[in-house]
Design a binder for these strands. Structure first.
Lengths: 332, 332
DNA sequence: CAGCCGGGGTAATACGTATAACTTGACGCG
DNA sequence: CGCGTCAAGTTATACGTATTACCCCGGCTG
């Protein structure tokens, strides 16, 4: 009552195992007569034959499987990255297996063991460089998502035009008359944070103020942090630039609790354009990040690298979506 | 410049390949002297040896890998199910690979091919019975999540106490004086929906009204559906029972657009207790579903089944979380 | 009619591992 | 001293597949 092998199909069809493989491989047209090919196919279907992937992988020396390393799948952004990567992978007969969170909370230490599968390559998102070794990035073809392009270990980089997104935000807010800004960033230190912070500092010209607050990446964490920062009326910022829609939602809640109206008294912007951005009220002005495309390009890059083609592409463009959480700066 | 094999380690250490396997397998204490064991381990580390998982899987006839079938990973609920399953799996040296969405939008047709790995078992969530065959549930040990316990194909079931959740909601709302209800359900037909709908119908005694509306599982879809249903003042429900927090958020938005206050004019309840539930304002009264525990129990059940132990457990309890979206029924 | 070619199939092999079965000294004991 | 026992390795094999190299035979050509 064990699973049938290609040899079982062969004997049942009265041919050799090689013939079965030839037919089912579908790779050598004309190698087998149409008559026997049909017979083999019919027999295989009848027995419910499924090729043993472990054996095939061993024989071929490749598993057509990529490892995607993400901080947390419960973050909609990364779930969408996975979706995009998985779609492109499937189109090329590849699979994607996940390794959530190398920052400590992940399920296992060794992603190789955790993946339980030989890997052809790695796509790693927002990861500290020191984790690369554990991941095996030194051994396997590696594509980095949203990381420092100068980091040498990676075979290819896929980046979003974060700085340009920040430019669109600041231009929008400056045009609305805002001068006192607060940058609400995630507590985890990543290249993404540095890029955005640097862009923001550069873009805000003289005559402006900028404070930075960091908070855990949760609505409640952001609310708590902002309630503390917005309590005192003197010098209160009029615009809060958040690194994530989740933080922006928290900031809006804090404002409401303090009796501040959004956007009349306080403008708030987000990043990512998650489902959350249009679920809350007011709907968030935010930078739309095409997460699926990040996954798609990541996988495309990996496929190119695996074929030996060096891969490079311009940053993925991002666009500001103006909604209801931003408005003219209040006149004092 | 290819990856070293166990044989490479063996020759480098001056022992046989079997010895390497014996040492690294760590399974036969006293089989190899401590001296040579140390030598082998040191050599393996020096060469950067990693066992070829494909070969090991082939040899062992098991991949220690489970397939998790979920509708969409972008739904936080399922992302959390995955997280729970992956953690338990990792504790037992198992891996979890995903097959998102058999309802059509998934990356590939054949989950086996898509997984690119031989599988030891399947954990399937909210799936139509007809998809079972394609999944290979007839071939592999199968654990079903939130599905009809009477469905025979599954080796084990893991269910949430949905009916009890509905009971808690209705008792809460009835106590608040509500009599005219609207059940806002997802458009996809699942066992979960039927269970909840049936429970709701049963629990609402005489002297109550119940309407049912179905909508796509998005905030905007729910908002649109509700704007239509709430437009006419006559016979308007006072309580909206939603099958999902996402729908509840949409209902709240619809209410606000129509000038109705939540909870003063309209009470709204959700299901799941996603991050969204506390991100929106008012915070949602909702039934907390321990999603991670669903994943954990699913994996635990699969492990039991793989060991030949029949597995069974009571429904996972759920609890109503009372927040700000429900209040006393308005007096006409 | 000999030689050659190509269509259609088969036998053999290697991928890298885990383990069962066997070997070889050394040693204790009757 | 002979034999069983045991520790510490080694040899051999099988897992299921894809592919290479080979074989057989009928038909065509010179």
């Amino acid at each position: 009552m064990t699973r049938p092998t290609s040899r079982d199909v062969a004997t049942a069809a009265g041919v050799s195992q090689a013939t079965v493989s030839l037919v089912l491989g579908d790779k050598w047209p004309g190698r087998v007569s149409e008559r026997t090919a049909a017979l083999v196919r019919e027999t295989a279907a009848r027995l419910g034959y499924r090729p043993n992937l472990a054996a095939r992988n061993l024989r071929l020396g490749s598993t057509r499987t990529a490892l995607l390393v993400v901080p947390a799948l419960t973050n909609e952004f990364f779930a969408r990255v996975y979706t995009g990567a998985a779609r492109v992978a499937a189109e090329h007969g590849f699979g994607v297996v996940l390794y959530p969170s190398p920052d400590g909370t992940g399920p296992a230490r060794d992603p190789f063991a955790s993946a339980r599968a030989a890997l052809d390559g790695v796509i790693a998102s927002s990861m500290a460089a020191h984790a690369l070794h554990a991941i095996g990035g030194d051994t396997l073809p590696l594509v980095m998502l949203d990381s420092d392009p100068r980091a040498g270990a990676a075979a290819a980089h896929v980046n979003l035009a974060m700085a340009d997104g920040m430019r669109q935000i600041t231009e929008h807010l400056l045009a609305l008359g805002h001068r006192r800004f607060l940058h609400l960033a995630s507590a985890v230190d990543s290249w993404t944070f540095h890029t955005r912070a640097e862009a923001l500092t550069t873009l805000l010209g003289p005559g402006t103020e900028l404070r930075t607050v960091r908070s855990p990446l949760t609505v409640d964490g952001a609310r708590t942090a902002m309630e503390a920062s917005l309590a005192a009326p003197e010098g209160r910022p009029t615009a809060i630039v958040c690194d994530d829609d989740i933080l922006a939602a928290g900031a809006c809640k804090a404002a409401r609790r303090l009796g501040l109206r959004v956007p009349e008294d306080l403008s708030v912007t987000g990043f990512d354009d998650l489902a959350l951005a249009t679920a809350v009220e007011p709907e968030l002005t935010t930078v739309h990040l095409p997460a699926e495309r990040v996954g798609e390009q990541g996988m495309t890059a990996l496929l190119a690298v695996l074929e030996g083609t060096p891969w490079t592409a311009p940053d993925i463009p991002v666009t500001l979506v103006t909604r209801d959480s931003t408005g003219p700066a209040p006149t004092p």
